[in-house]
């Protein structure tokens, strides 16, 4: 199940217009991703952490999400300093750590964490449904938005069908092992899932046609203007200018 633990909340950031959050999260991510100077990157991590604190999220839950990404980054630390060409930073017996490799790894670490924290603060603080509507208002192509929303809607149904199939296999004594029977069973299971998903899609489409669907979707969501939007936009703009300044000056 996809749960949205951060979507519910009463913080100031939760109240900001989702469209504005999407716009600034995108701009912020791009600026951080293109930054190379460490003062700018360190500042970005601090700012992102500040946003998470302002959103009032459970820091422990946020940390758990960061662990997933930093596991991947750990791999980079193991590979890049050893393989990157450039002047050496340190000799450890036969192993040479390259300076550009270490710098690159550090940059990637800071960038990823800063962007991830900002996205958790700004994007996870709205439900996926709201995000879909915000994107649609931002003139993201309708097909993409609806693909996104329908996927989210039917992931649950397909997951349920998957669980039903697994249960059906289990109650008949299926125990996975390393043998051809297991592979075959899983192949059938996945194949069946595709067949069922396709049949489901067909029925959903029929139901939509029965209700006069002509290829157009409508969104009923409204985003009322609020003063908090102006405050948020001003602060975020200041952040962005600050980061650009740090990047250019150093």
């Amino acid at each position: 199940m996809i749960s949205e633990p951060f979507a519910a909340g009463k913080s100031k950031i939760h109240q900001v217009d989702p469209r504005i959050k999407v716009v600034f999260a995108t701009a912020y991510s791009f600026i951080v991703a293109f930054s190379t100077q460490f003062p700018a990157l360190f500042t970005a991590v601090v700012l992102s952490f500040l946003m998470v604190c302002l959103t009032g999220l459970n820091l422990w839950a946020v940390a758990k999400r960061l662990v997933v990404v930093n596991g991947l980054i750990l791999l980079l630390w193991l590979i890049l300093p050893l393989t990157y060409n450039g002047d050496s930073l340190l000799h450890l017996g036969p192993i040479t750590l390259s300076r550009p490799g270490v710098i690159l790894s550090a940059q990637i670490t800071l960038k990823s964490n800063a962007i991830l924290l900002a996205l958790i603060a700004l994007i996870s603080s709205m439900s996926l449904v709201t995000l879909g509507h915000a994107l649609s208002r931002l003139k993201v192509p309708e097909k993409i938005v609806h693909l996104f929303l329908m996927t989210f809607r039917y992931v649950f149904v397909i997951e349920n069908e998957y669980l039903r199939l697994v249960r059906a296999a289990k109650i008949r004594g299926f125990r996975p092992g390393t043998n051809i029977h297991t592979y075959k069973t899983y192949a059938y299971l996945i194949g069946m899932l595709f067949v069922r998903a396709a049949a489901r899609a067909e029925r959903v489409h029929q139901a939509m046609r029965c209700r006069g669907f002509k290829g157009k979707f409508y969104s009923l969501y409204r985003f009322p203007p609020k003063s908090i939007n102006w405050v948020f936009s001003s602060v975020m703009t200041a952040f962005l200018i600050g980061l650009l300044y740090l990047e250019i000056v150093f």
């Binding site: 329908m150 989210f152 809607r153 029925r203 959903v204 139901a207 409508y218």
Partner: peptide, 10 residues
């Protein structure tokens, strides 16, 4: 099969 929109009202 019938309910595909995110919210009931929609």
């Amino acid at each position: 099969d019938q309910l595909f929109s995110p919210t009931v009202l929609e």
